[in-house]
Simulated scan of single mutants.
Amino acid sequence: MKKLMVFCLMAMFIYACSSNSNESKKAESTSEVSAPAGNDASAYDEHRGEGKFTNVEIGEKLDPAMAAEGKLVADVKCASCHKMSDERLVGPGWKGVTERRKPEWIMNFVTNPDPMLDKDPALQAQLELCLVRMPNQNITDEEARQIYEYMRENDGVK
């Protein structure tokens, strides 16, 4: 049973990483050869990342319903690569991520990882450790907010 579960997780990982292979391969090859137009790393905000989220209002208290929805999304789209502890699986563990990163950065990264992987020095260093680019999982804005709330729950926010 354990072998079957490991096999299923690996199959999901391979599928997730190959589902948008043409676009990601094109983006990867472009970023290796030369920076695309408008890819000015000096304009990159390492605290916010790059994307549409500029000011996310987060309450002091956890929204349990939103966190529960976030868990459902994360179980399908994230759990094959990320653990809820600080242990790395394929990608880094999620423990403490909401304490290290602003909500805007996290939500921008999960909704559109490619531009941030191309510009963020910390992500590039992480990529050298993990050896696998985070695939774009087509996470909606609402799902990103739910995942963030689930991450907060994991980090002990009540």
Rank of each mutant, 00 (worst) to 15 (best):
K95L: 07
K25Y: 14
W105C: 00
Y148K: 03
P103H: 02
A16W: 06
E57T: 07
R88D: 13
D120G: 11
L117Q: 15
P135V: 04
S18Y: 02
N136A: 13
C17H: 09
E28I: 09
E60G: 03
V157L: 02
I58K: 05
Y44L: 09
Y148H: 15
A144P: 07
K158A: 13
E69M: 08
A68I: 00
A79H: 10
E142W: 04
Y150V: 00
E69N: 15
P92V: 07
P92S: 11
A27Y: 12
Y15C: 12
S21D: 14
L131A: 12
S18H: 04
A27I: 12
K119V: 08
M12L: 08
Y15R: 04
S24M: 09
V97R: 13
V110T: 11
S24R: 07
L127Y: 13
M84F: 04
N108P: 06
C81W: 10
V73S: 13
N112Q: 13
L131D: 12
P36W: 08
D155F: 01
R145C: 03
R88M: 14
G93Q: 12
E46V: 12
L131K: 15
T54L: 06
S18P: 02
K77D: 15
F109I: 09
G51Q: 10
E32F: 05
G91M: 06
R100L: 02
L117V: 06
K2A: 08
G49C: 04
C17V: 04
A41I: 14
Y148F: 15
P92D: 12
K158H: 09
P113Y: 04
Y148I: 02
V73W: 09
L123R: 14
Y150P: 02
A122L: 09
M107N: 07
L89E: 11
T54A: 10
D75W: 02
E57G: 00
L123W: 14
R145P: 03
I58D: 09
E28C: 02
T98K: 01
V157S: 05
E143D: 15
P115A: 09
G156S: 06
I147P: 07
D118F: 03
D63C: 00
F53V: 00
S34Q: 11
M151G: 01
M107T: 05
C78H: 05
W94M: 11
V97G: 08
K158V: 01
A67Y: 00
M1D: 13
E149F: 00
I139F: 06
P64V: 03
F53K: 01
M107F: 01
Y150C: 01
T98Y: 01
R152C: 00
L4K: 05
D45Y: 05
A65K: 12
A68Q: 08
A37Q: 14
E28K: 08
V73E: 15
D40P: 04
K25P: 03
S80D: 14
D118L: 04
D114Q: 10
N112S: 10
M1N: 13
L129T: 10
E50W: 12
C81V: 05
A125Q: 11
V76Y: 12
Q137V: 04
N136L: 03
M116G: 03
E50F: 13
V90N: 07
D75M: 06
S24K: 05
L127K: 12
T30H: 07
D114R: 05
I106K: 05
V97S: 11
V132A: 08
W105E: 00
K77P: 13
M10S: 14
A125P: 04
E57C: 00
V76K: 08
D40K: 06
S24I: 04
N39D: 15
K61Y: 03
D86A: 08
A35N: 09
L117S: 10
